[in-house]
Design a protein around this nucleic acid. Structure first.
Length: 288
DNA sequence: AATTCCCTCAACCGCCCAGAG
DNA sequence: ACTCTGGGCGGTTGAGGGAAT
């Protein structure tokens, strides 16, 4: 007997999310937090499966998401982590705050895999692929040119990331990455703020108007105590961190205050959401 | 300009695991 | 010990868009 579906799928909407649906989900989560995904669509007035809502939030709507393409350094780090962790995308993603496992998985499948293959490396084992039987001249030439290129250029760089060759050089490189990550911290936050602003614009909310709406909603909800069913420690709410700053300031709030408060909220989000297993133990393992 | 091909990535599916009863 | 349930994860799919023909 198979497992029962996670929810009643009859009558539920599937496929791409509309702006209106995004709006509803975002409003609901920011107002009430996340307690039970199964209940989210019902309470938010969405004809979606709870899983679908979770995925949409985690992969697209979360304000602390870092958008944009992967840098070469990030790619290298992904390769390095993949060589140690395999296809454990959530573990890999935990080393990239603001990136989702889905995003990394997609990037791996569409870009990095090809890059490794071009370099003559097996994406699974991260080891150099043995020359295949030569079928014709063209293929042989192609293969030799790829091999030559890989030996001359990037193979050394990737090889040193391989588990077996972990040594002083790798440690040094990791230390460098660590330092660079720290240096980039402010830029990352600025980027997240910028991305969130873009998301709000896309949802036709606008940071200012959205914030004002949140204040109105929160004022409305404070009395009815919507968080009563979402009182777990893992719930995410703007009540304390965000809107409180504005509600006391009334109409005199300015953009700077908004940025500061939003940034504070984003920082809190990191700890509240715990970044899907981004724990100290794992971090220590990575830095070893 | 029309068509085909290819790539990207959002979204879904099904399985696994942990916790509650 | 067992079942049920929700959350999480990894694999896969397919729509949409850009590039090539």
């Amino acid at each position: 007997m198979g497992r029962q579906p996670c929810c009643e799928k009859v009558g539920l909407k599937r496929g791409p999310w509309t702006i209106e649906e995004d709006h509803k989900l975002m409003n609901f989560i920011l107002n009430n937090g996340i307690h039970c995904w199964r209940m989210v669509p019902k309470l938010a007035g969405l004809l979606r499966c709870g899983k679908s809502c979770r995925l949409r939030w985690i992969n697209y709507l979360r304000p602390d998401l870092k958008r944009g393409g992967f840098t070469e350094m990030e790619e290298d780090q992904i390769i390095q982590l993949h060589s140690r962790l395999g296809n454990r995308w959530s573990k890999i993603a935990s080393h990239f705050p603001g990136r989702t496992d889905n995003e990394i998985k997609n990037h791996w499948n569409t870009r990095i895999k090809k890059r490794l293959k071009l370099l003559g490396l097996d994406p699974v084992t991260h080891k150099k692929v043995e020359p295949v039987e030569q079928i014709d001249g063209n293929k042989a030439n192609l293969h030799s040119s790829i091999s030559q290129k890989s030996e001359e250029n990037d193979v050394q760089e990737i090889k040193c990331m391989d588990n077996s060759s972990a040594g002083a050089e790798e440690t040094k490189k990791r230390e460098e990455m660590k330092v660079m990550n720290l240096d980039d911290h402010d830029d990352d936050n600025a980027e997240i703020l910028n991305n969130f602003d873009m998301l709000c614009s896309k949802l036709d909310m606008g940071m200012g108007s959205w914030i004002e709406q949140e204040i109105i909603n929160n004022n409305d909800n404070n009395n009815s105590s919507t968080s009563s069913h979402c009182s777990s420690s893992s719930s995410v709410s703007m009540d304390e961190n965000y809107s409180s700053n504005f509600s006391s300031k009334g109409e005199s709030k300015n953009e700077h205050d908004q940025d500061n408060s939003l940034q504070q909220w984003i920082e809190n989000m990191d700890s509240i959401l715990s970044w899907d297993g981004f724990n100290a133990l794992d971090q220590d393992l990575f830095l070893l």
